[in-house]
Design a protein around this nucleic acid. Structure first.
Lengths: 179, 179
DNA sequence: TATGAAAGGAACAAGGT
DNA sequence: ACCTTGTTCCTTTCATA
């Protein structure tokens, strides 16, 4: 057995919660919060990372501040036998797609797309629709967020593989982080 | 005008990118990556935080490791004149809703929901549907992710802070958790 | 640049198997 | 006895005025 089922206890949960609330909290700080020494916290965090419970640390960013003013969800309908694998390839070709998943319901997949503005979004959409086996798309533009720190609001922005206009925007398309 | 448009230059962009890739990177580390001294980096990071370009730091977590095995998007249709404000209140009452936004298209809002399992999701859905002016919901269960670290995959979950019951890995049940 | 704080490692102690 | 998980130093690196 390669991985033993990590005994994820209440202490781990508190540590994870502390790190989700403040990803730069010091081990000592977390320690006093959960009742451990800093080194004990570090060991547990190391283990949580090794077990891929914690997959990384990131700054949360306000996309609008970086020029990503437009956001939409796009339902994708594929030709008959569209293998998810091929869809995954397609999705990776468009850096503006910040999340993509297969879903139940009429559509085959749901994409989350960020663009600098509506014009840019239209360009992205056209690009997606020219992909081989994509039959149809239905878009929902995001108007306003009802929760302050929704994941979509900050976690990831697309890379400016080819920046759409004028100024280049910060990269990203994160993989994992090793501190 | 309260906020002056912060002069957001290429260096800032690189710093933000570095911090999104590794939210616990030291200022010195970032400095060598972008060609600045650690103190210069700190000054810029402080400014980026003050300007709310960077809104915080967080650990990215694999929800399944915490027992959140089920994920869905829910389109919400409201009664005639449903003010977004009221929807925001409703949304805050259900900790399983991890993102919520008003959207164009037929639906009034789109919710992202996490639950421990399908049973739990059904319970959440029933709870949402009993809310006063919600007329109808349409759910899309997420089957598989096509991008590795999509925001939805890791950024925020209902807090793991409180241990709901028992022990071991698949945590969380009906004892709903507030952050 | 200088001071205190944090990270990270080594060595050791207590419980549980 | 051994493995796990906690502790207390200690040194190097970092944060920050």
């Amino acid at each position: 057995m390669p991985h033993k089922a990590a005994p994820f206890d209440a202490l781990d949960r508190k540590i994870v919660a502390a790190l989700m609330e403040n990803g730069r909290a010091s081990f000592a700080e977390i320690g006093t919060a959960v009742g451990l020494s800093s080194t004990a916290v570090k060991r547990r965090v190391d283990r949580l990372r090794a077990d891929d419970v914690i997959t990384g640390f990131t700054a949360t960013v306000r996309p609008a501040a970086l020029g990503w003013l437009t956001e939409a969800y796009v339902e994708v309908y594929c030709d008959s036998a569209a293998p998810p694998r091929r869809l995954a390839e397609v999705v990776r070709n468009h850096p503006e797609i910040t999340a993509a998943m297969t879903v139940t319901g009429g559509a085959d997949a749901l994409l989350h797309v960020r663009a600098t503005d509506v014009e840019h979004f239209e360009e992205v959409l056209e690009r997606i629709r020219t992909e081989p086996f994509i039959r149809k798309t239905i878009s929902f533009m995001v108007l306003s967020h009802l929760l302050p720190d929704s994941p979509e609001a900050g976690a990831r922005q697309p890379s400016p593989a080819h920046e759409p206009r004028g100024e280049s925007l910060p990269t990203q398309r994160t993989g994992h982080n090793r501190p």
